[in-house]
Amino acid sequence: MAELKKARSVLAVRDLRTSVAFYCENLGFAINAEFDGWCFLSRDGIQLMLGHCPDEIPASQINDHSYFAYIEVQGVDGLHKEFLDRGLKSFSAPESKPWGMREFMVTTPDGHRIMFGEDVDSPQRRRSD
């Protein structure tokens, strides 16, 4: 039987250098490889492929659902503090949700949104399991 091994997100970005700097400086990603018009990044088990697409409409202007990832983490409040310490400005504070996750959102320079969440023990979640 086939096995799904891992996932990578592929994102079109208008300014590759600006986006790479954002992911590395603000979110702690590292550059794994660079090719003509591409940069591959990773942090822990998360991998991103950023493609330079200067003529594409940025996610911030499509007036549509622009989330590209929901990343489950351990220590969501610590991650939020790390991002604050790195000087990140475009993100929300962590909130505990009725579906049993504590979450916050980050917006990238192109307007893509990333939700970071941690599973928390809640009565609502226990009822649905």
Score class of each variant (00 low, 15 high):
residue 1 M to E: 06
residue 1 M to D: 10
residue 2 A to V: 14
residue 2 A to F: 14
residue 3 E to S: 13
residue 3 E to L: 15
residue 3 E to R: 14
residue 6 K to Q: 10
residue 7 A to H: 07
residue 7 A to M: 13
residue 10 V to K: 02
residue 10 V to D: 00
residue 12 A to T: 11
residue 17 R to A: 14
residue 19 S to Y: 01
residue 21 A to C: 02
residue 21 A to H: 05
residue 23 Y to W: 12
residue 25 E to P: 02
residue 26 N to Q: 14
residue 26 N to P: 00
residue 27 L to G: 05
residue 27 L to I: 01
residue 28 G to I: 05
residue 28 G to K: 03
residue 30 A to Y: 01
residue 31 I to R: 06
residue 31 I to H: 02
residue 32 N to R: 09
residue 34 E to S: 12
residue 34 E to Y: 00
residue 35 F to H: 11
residue 35 F to Y: 14
residue 36 D to R: 11
residue 37 G to F: 12
residue 37 G to Q: 11
residue 37 G to H: 14
residue 44 D to V: 03
residue 44 D to A: 13
residue 45 G to Y: 08
residue 46 I to F: 08
residue 48 L to R: 04
residue 50 L to K: 03
residue 51 G to S: 13
residue 52 H to P: 02
residue 53 C to Y: 12
residue 56 E to P: 00
residue 56 E to K: 13
residue 58 P to W: 09
residue 58 P to M: 08
residue 59 A to N: 11
residue 59 A to C: 11
residue 60 S to G: 05
residue 61 Q to F: 05
residue 63 N to C: 02
residue 63 N to V: 00
residue 66 S to D: 09
residue 66 S to V: 12
residue 66 S to Q: 10
residue 68 F to A: 09
residue 70 Y to S: 08
residue 71 I to R: 01
residue 72 E to Q: 11
residue 72 E to W: 06
residue 73 V to W: 03
residue 73 V to A: 04
residue 75 G to T: 03
residue 75 G to P: 02
residue 75 G to S: 01
residue 77 D to L: 08
residue 78 G to S: 12
residue 78 G to K: 08
residue 78 G to V: 00
residue 81 K to W: 02
residue 86 R to A: 10
residue 89 K to M: 10
residue 90 S to G: 00
residue 90 S to H: 09
residue 90 S to I: 03
residue 90 S to V: 07
residue 91 F to M: 15
residue 91 F to N: 03
residue 92 S to D: 10
residue 92 S to I: 06
residue 94 P to V: 06
residue 95 E to H: 10
residue 99 W to I: 13
residue 102 R to Q: 06
residue 102 R to L: 05
residue 102 R to H: 07
residue 102 R to Y: 03
residue 104 F to P: 10
residue 104 F to H: 09
residue 105 M to P: 01
residue 107 T to N: 04
residue 108 T to E: 09
residue 109 P to R: 07
residue 109 P to L: 05
residue 109 P to A: 05
residue 110 D to H: 05
residue 111 G to D: 07
residue 114 I to G: 03
residue 115 M to V: 13
residue 116 F to Y: 14
residue 117 G to I: 05
residue 117 G to Q: 04
residue 117 G to Y: 02
residue 118 E to L: 11
residue 119 D to I: 09
residue 120 V to D: 00
residue 120 V to M: 07
residue 121 D to F: 04
residue 121 D to R: 09
residue 125 R to Q: 09
residue 125 R to C: 01
residue 128 S to K: 07
residue 129 D to K: 09
residue 129 D to L: 08
